[in-house]
Design a protein around this nucleic acid. Structure first.
Length: 494
RNA sequence: GCCGCCUUAGCUCAGUCGGUUAGAGCGCCAGAUUGUGGAUCUGGAGGUCCCCCGUUCGAUCCGGGGAGGCGGUACCA
């Protein structure tokens, strides 16, 4: 192989990993700032954990099985120990509490924000690296703790710009679903076959929102064929059992304590918990219309032991091609009383919730919310010999708190103005030989100019008219730029 | 993972019933306009037709395999 055939890597990203530009990064920061402020008002304190954990600390998933990277990203450290990137903020918290490292006050109330990673197939609003904002209460059995988290999600979604009627929190309880299965006469027990059967039923129920009651019926019974012709095997239940489950799922009236759901011990326990939550939410000022009991909410994460909930946006989101897109829940949580016990054998009740910041931004952006970032004031490089003067100008502007930069490329004036346009610069500062001789600078109001350009057809007239441009004494640079910026802000808020 | 569809210029996509110079629109660069953004006009750059193997005188096109993208489905501790 000669040198011209040297290896060249392909410039590309792993699937599910994204580059984010100014507008989106700004949105992320805003969202995390708003949620942090709210969390602190609720009495949660920040507590951050690292991105990497020992794999066995993260869950029952042991990476030295056949598929070490199933679900998580894992690799071996130089001492052969398996490390995993965290897939949420909750499991690392349980580890930290079990270690005895957490602040001693119980209940412990904390929040955390940051990226988490999941090794799974990406989709719309579903990434392999994404930001989560997490709140937890560790050491409390009170249903009021769960209710507070639901209230936090509801208030948090509003705080980041989702209208009150733009989302709904679906609330369920692990024991509620257990009760539904008990009522349908599906055997319970530790036997592997029995557990597998229960799991199949559980997963079928979970798909109600996506596949509808018809789809669930097929999955509970003989199985279902999808659009592409692929077949999913069913749970093979009897018609009477399917009917019983259907009746329970139908009882989604808000906090309804009657009907099928109250017939089993597990169901009654769940309903008592949910009733406590209902009362707490009312006291916290969260209207019943924003939270509804939805028994089909199961949630995948196995560590949940009690109430589980997820918030979904209610407005249909359409992609660029007009086709509706499914984003799934934008925030979720639940109670995980046994998570710390995995380490210590001691039961520590805990409950937590998190907001999917990346997914939320993705959904809101696709719903039509645009994000445009304003660029810095641009000082044109008219004459390379004057670089020091130009740098002095940007330093003055920066010193006054105005974002500013000197054009550092090699292009001519015309191209520099085009650059300013593309950066979204509000003002261009020009000082060539003419201006310098007179001790002046020329300031172009690029926002105003762009507006005026719309009504001017002829380029010559446009250029000779030199619209939206003024001359200022060099000494008044900062004040003059500030005046233009102020004018622009007023113009934008009519 | 399984199933289906797709992959041609920076982007969106035509096209070649297998034939030597592969196109459009948008974008980009330049000029008209020696120091002025937009519009207009003129010109220009830009392609391993996803990759490998096979069939063929000849493959971007046909066959096989692979990769990547999209969607469905499964899984999601």
């Amino acid at each position: 192989m000669n040198e011209s055939e040297a290896f060249r890597p392909e410039a590309r990203q792993p699937r599910g990993f994204r580059d984010r530009f100014a507008g989106e990064v700004a949105r992320e920061r805003e969202m995390i700032a708003a949620l942090s402020a709210l969390a602190e008002r609720y009495g949660f304190a920040p507590l951050a954990t690292p991105a990497l954990e020992y794999a066995d600390a993260l869950g029952k998933f042991l990476p030295d099985e056949d598929r070490p990277n199933e679900g998580v990203f894992a690799f071996q450290d130089d001492d052969e120990a398996w490390l995993s990137l965290r897939y949420d903020h909750t499991a690392p918290l349980a580890r930290l509490v079990a270690q005895g490292e957490a602040p001693p006050a119980r209940p412990l109330r904390r929040y955390a924000a940051g990226p988490v990673w999941r090794n799974e197939k990406p989709g719309p609003g579903r990434f392999r690296e994404f930001l989560q904002f997490d709140v937890d209460t560790v050491g409390s059995e009170a249903m009021a703790a769960d209710a507070e988290l639901i209230a936090f999600l509801a208030e948090g979604l509003e705080a980041v710009g989702v209208p009150q009627d733009g989302f709904v929190v679906n609330l369920s309880h692990r024991k509620l679903v257990a009760g539904i299965m008990d009522a349908a006469g599906i055997p319970a027990g530790e036997d592997a076959a029995i557990r597998a059967q229960r799991l199949r039923v559980l997963r079928s129920i979970d798909k109600l929102d996506r596949l509808g009651i018809e789809g669930v019926r097929l999955l509970l019974g003989p199985g279902r064929r999808d659009e592409s012709g692929d077949v999913t095997p069913g749970a093979g239940l009897k018609d009477s059992q399917i009917a019983s489950i259907e009746a329970s799922l139908g009882a989604t009236v808000a906090f309804d304590a009657g009907g099928e759901l109250g017939r089993t011990p597990a169901g009654r326990e769940a309903l008592a918990d949910l009733e406590e939550i209902r009362l707490a939410l009312a006291a916290l000022g969260i209207g019943a219309e924003r939270v509804r009991v939805t028994p089909s909410v199961v949630r995948g994460i196995e560590y949940y032991t009690g109430p589980v909930f997820e918030a979904e946006l209610t407005h249909e989101i359409r992609g660029p091609d007009g086709a509706p897109m499914r984003f799934g829940s934008v925030a979720s949580g639940g109670r995980y009383d046994d998570l710390v016990m995995r380490f210590t054998g001691e039961r520590v009740p805990a409950t937590g919730a998190s907001v999917g910041v990346s997914r939320l931004i993705s959904a809101l952006t696709k719903a039509g919310e645009a994000a445009g970032a304003e660029g810095p004031v641009l000082v044109l490089a008219m004459d390379r010999a004057m670089t020091a003067d130009y740098l002095a100008m940007v330093a003055e502007l920066r010193g006054a708190g105005i974002p500013a930069e000197l054009y550092l490329g090699r292009a001519g004036m015309k191209a520099q103005l085009k650059y300013a346009d593309r950066r979204g610069s509000p003002v261009a500062v020009i000082q060539g030989g003419d201006e310098r001789a007179k001790g002046e600078v020329t300031l172009k109001d690029l926002k105003l100019g762009a507006e005026m350009a719309r009504s001017i057809e002829d380029n010559r007239a446009w250029r000779e008219g030199r619209p939206a441009q003024e001359t200022a004494a060099r000494g008044t640079l900062v004040a003059s730029v500030r005046a233009i910026l102020a004018r622009q802000r007023e113009g934008r808020a009519p």
